[in-house]
Amino acid sequence: MNADYLELSDVRVSFDGFLAVDGVSMTVLQGDLRFLIGPNGAGKTTLVDAITGLAPATGSVRFGRTELLGRKVHRIARLGIGRTFQTASVFEELTVLQNLDIAAGAGRGPLTLLRARSAVPDAVAEALETVGLSARRDEKAGVLAHGQKQWLEIGMLLVQNSRVLLLDEPVAGMSGEEREQTGELLRRVGAERTVVVVEHDMDFMRTFADSVTVLHAGKVLSEGTVAQVQADEGVQEVYLGEAATRKALAAVAEQEGE
């Protein structure tokens, strides 16, 4: 089987003349758990939006031989590009099972759609098992804990048969244990898929990333293994600068708290 890959070359996204993504080129291979990091406003989410057809972009985004730019959102999704969102966006009024069943059904014909679901599709049962939500199958997605919603979203990508998973801050707001579980889950599902994780959490990145791309002001600042990226002076500057700001802010907050 040929390995999949996602290849971006010179991708640009501009909002009213402001270049949010300014000529990004990168290649992500199947089985390579790629983290996309960078300070706020670096263009990480915008880049994901560009790949999935939400933000109009120029340049080229190819999945294997298929050009993705210029296609409609739902067509790109059908080509096997799946994504999650910073704030988990599951269908809260529907059960976990219904959420997954909908995600699995983009290719269903009208007759199947007009019938009630008679059994749990195999892919759905498998995904329930993989993301550890089998026991909560018939509960409404709205009552799930934050971490579980993110897992449900990942499960939806799995049943959707996505070859490329673009995850936007999957562990934001999770407890340490949940982060650990999410990381393991990503490793498991990432072996056969092309995975890009947008993340702010540096510890999480260090533990699970195979490779890292650092974005800053819409451009690729550095790319390589975790060690290579951490040794990069430009990266240190950007992050130290931000760390200093954050420390200052924390100090102010502490003072105000007292």
């Binding site: 999935t52 959102v73 739902h74 994504r83 966006s89 599951v90 269908f91 009024e93 529907l94 959707q160």
Partner: peptide
């Protein structure tokens, strides 16, 4: 699902 999260449904194909 479309009523509650129209954009999300789009990303499911």
């Amino acid at each position: 699902a479309v009523r509650d999260q129209e954009e999300r449904v789009r990303f499911l194909g």
